[in-house]
Amino acid sequence: MIDSFPFDKWSDDISAFWTFWSEDRTGTYIMTVLGIIVMLAAFVYWTWLENRKLQAQAALLRAAGGMPAPGGVPPGPGPSQPPLAGPSTDPGD
């Protein structure tokens, strides 16, 4: 089975589909559309993620009572140090 698999043709077909400027333009069109979709998704994700971060921080500051210290409190754990340091930003973590 493995000996009979047409690796060369398979490789040529894959290459012709995915690389730029081959006779078959289908791959170029598909990648263009995929690129646009990913680009738009990145905008949506950026907006959603930042909104979560900002709302979580604002909620923490309000919950801490009073006003936040302009310029931030001294570094270290405290009411203005959210429990979501690092890439995870789920306020429920």
Binding site: E50, K53, L54, A56, Q57, A58, L61, P68, A69, P70, G71, G72, V73, S80, Q81, P82, L84, A85, G86
Partner: peptide, 9 residues
């Protein structure tokens, strides 16, 4: 408080 604390902690 500053944007850096909210955006980057």
């Amino acid at each position: 408080e500053g944007l850096d604390m909210a955006e980057f902690q």
